[in-house]
Design a protein around this nucleic acid. Structure first.
Lengths: 234, 234
DNA sequence: GTCGCCGCTTGATCGCTGTCAAAGCCGCTG
DNA sequence: CAGCGGCTTTGACAGCGATCAAGCGGCGAC
């Protein structure tokens, strides 16, 4: 390890994200500048304010991207999953902090070299454009949530999003989901406080829509139909 | 008129935005599918939920891009100025409504044809990628505002942004800015209500940081230094 | 097993912002 | 010039979510 003996061909995300769209030549160009890197839960990849020297593809795990105000309040502005790309291309200094939420593996590139490779690799450029447009749509949907939705709608909507992303259907009609983040991260993501998130979850529990387990980290959706109108009330 | 007799070469935004980066061949390809279109203030270019058939470059004017919840609450998720591109590429149906805030001129393209032209025009693709990345950064900064900042910070910050974008310095130290939107739009943009925005503005007036004129549509920044800490408190 | 820590939950209270309502201001029309 | 209508401002009040402060519970260390 340490070298790029991990060729892209045997990468877990070979068919996902940027790499999935790259043709053979472009992929080998990418592969020559990438380095594998493991990040433990809680470790930071990039600090806001630092020189913006790297970007990466996520091979496994989940990262959070946070923005923060001058006086230290934090907002999660994006979650990054396996196959996703993370980094602020074309910016000299980074305004965002990127942190691993769970143990994660990345394929890290020097930002400027990545940009130069990409300029010659139109298949990669095209894919990145598509993904960036998709991220922009996500961001806009979340702006709507942060600007106009109440706490109950935010929490219920978040659970439904999680279901669509990582659902594990169980024997009876219920759906089990693992919440990959702490209550604090959930609150930062939703623009709420820990306490409000917790209260909304117990409200949902009392309503019979969900049950909590494993110290709140595992949620069983017992009545999805009840959740929908709470997330999107008439 | 009605034809593309308005060739790109004589366009007001020839050197801005997408067109500014396009090389000669790419530009003529683009020019052959674009049509000029004027939009009066208040007119809608695209409705959320409709088939997503077009995209455009803004030649002059200002548009707002809004997202809305099922029960009708609206959030402005972006403002589009001269030289900017607007439209949701690669989406079959649009989730956003685009409305002119002031009389505007656009260069409108059929979305799918634009995508096909772009696929052959890497200079355009590259420029669009850069702009989309910049929009994403904007969106994330705004998520921080919507999630974590108070009303005073939002309003003061909005004014400072306007100053940086469209300042008209006057004789004494003061700075005059035209607010291009109604109080209602300002509120939608900031995730507040009309009344809260109005109250914050009069608060700034009482503090001596600004004075209002023209029914609130023109704002004189009399003490920018006082505004900064209100927008970004320690 | 038991202790201690950390994250989650629950409770009480406060303040900000939204809501509802009315009045003011300005430009426009006739 | 008078009257009207839309936008803005101001006021009173209520509600939601933040804040402050205990409890609770699970998990690991010893």
């Amino acid at each position: 390890m340490g070298t790029q003996s991990n060729r892209c061909a045997e990468c877990d995300v070979r068919d996902m994200g940027l790499c999935g769209a790259a043709d053979r030549d472009d992929l080998s160009a990418l592969s020559s500048i990438g380095r594998r890197r493991a990040l433990a839960a809680g470790q930071v990849l990039t600090w806001a304010g630092d020189d913006n020297v790297l970007c990466a593809n996520v091979v496994s795990g989940i990262l959070k991207v946070t923005a923060s105000t001058a006086n230290g309040r934090e907002q999660i502005v994006g979650l990054v999953f396996a196959g996703d790309f993370v980094g602020q291309l074309f910016e000299e200094t980074s305004s965002l902090t990127v942190t691993a939420l769970v143990d994660s593996d990345l394929c890290v590139y020097p930002r400027e070299r990545f940009e130069r490779v990409m300029a010659e690799a139109s298949s990669i450029e095209r894919m990145l454009l598509r993904r960036t447009l998709a991220s922009l749509n996500d961001a806009r949907e979340r702006m709507l949530t942060l600007g106009k939705r109440g706490a109950q709608e935010r929490v219920a909507g978040f659970l439904l999003d999680l279901v669509d992303r990582t659902a594990v259907r169980t024997v009876d009609g219920s759906i089990s989901i693992d919440v990959p983040v702490s209550r604090g991260d959930m609150a930062d993501f939703l623009g709420l406080t820990i306490e409000t998130v917790s209260r909304q979850l117990t409200r949902l529990k009392v309503l019979g829509a969900i049950t909590l387990a494993r110290g709140g980290r595992s949620i069983l959706i017992t009545d999805r139909a009840a959740l929908e109108p709470l997330a999107n009330p008439e």
